[in-house]
Nucleic acid binder design. Structure first.
Lengths: 121, 121
DNA sequence: ATTAATACTCTACATTTGTAGAATCAATTC
DNA sequence: GAATTGATTCTACAAATGTAGAGTATTAAT
């Protein structure tokens, strides 16, 4: 099962906050914020799909993600890669670094990470 | 306007082939292949959305992409990044290189590319 | 010519998505 | 204790998606 684009956005807020009540999630949206009922519907659907859990606090719910961001994202990204880059991660990676506009500092950070990984191979 | 997941898959075939007749596109699918009418519908919708064009060859059409893969992908990826990594490309990049399982060779390739890019900054 | 195969359009239909009002129930405030 | 606020569920509904049959036109094969 997967999330729709809109659900993903909400999910990203939830990942960011880690635990959150409805109102916290609503606050995360920039204007124009969706109606509370809209978010409620989304949360319900996401709960049904098994991506979100909650703990009751008195009468209201504190929601939390049931899937790791990285886990979800890996799957997601791999799908994209398969589709667009005929399954080549490195092709994708080089494309990515070319396309997204990283600053010099970011690039250097990234190189450091890569160096580290090369060392571990 | 954007493509749905299924449309994206078809689009990836089209990008790969660059120009293709219906049957060529159908061949690209692995089993179980969709019905020809399904692909035809998809192609029509994608044409309507302005992602695909075609040239008539006698009675049938040779389809071709009207959007660059990289252009489309940039937009796509940027949306994801925004959602999942709070707008930080470098955060994404480091995540990506950690998560996807690049070989030593691929990593070295990638480092070379990055070095190149650092030089140009 | 008759048939068979192709490509395409039209139509169809169940699901999913995006969005939110109305109603309900509980908590808080005046 | 009456009214307001907040969270949730129910209901609704249009648009988009996934999928493909039926019908039509055209070309190729026999």
């Amino acid at each position: 099962m997967k999330l729709s684009k809109t659900e993903e956005e909400l999910m990203s807020h939830l990942w960011k906050l880690d635990k959150a009540f409805m109102k916290d999630l609503l606050e995360e949206y920039s204007e124009p914020k969706p109606a509370t009922t809209t978010v409620a519907t989304l949360l319900k659907r996401m709960t049904d799909k098994g991506f979100v859990g909650y703990e009751l606090f008195g009468k209201s719910r504190q929601y939390f993600p049931l899937v790791e961001k990285t886990a979800y994202f890996s799957k997601h990204v791999n799908g994209l890669i398969k589709n667009f880059f005929n399954d080549s991660s490195s092709q994708f990676a080089s494309f990515f670094t070319k396309e997204t506009d990283l600053t010099k500092k970011e690039l250097e950070e990234l190189r450091a990470i890569i160096d580290q990984q090369i060392k571990n191979k």
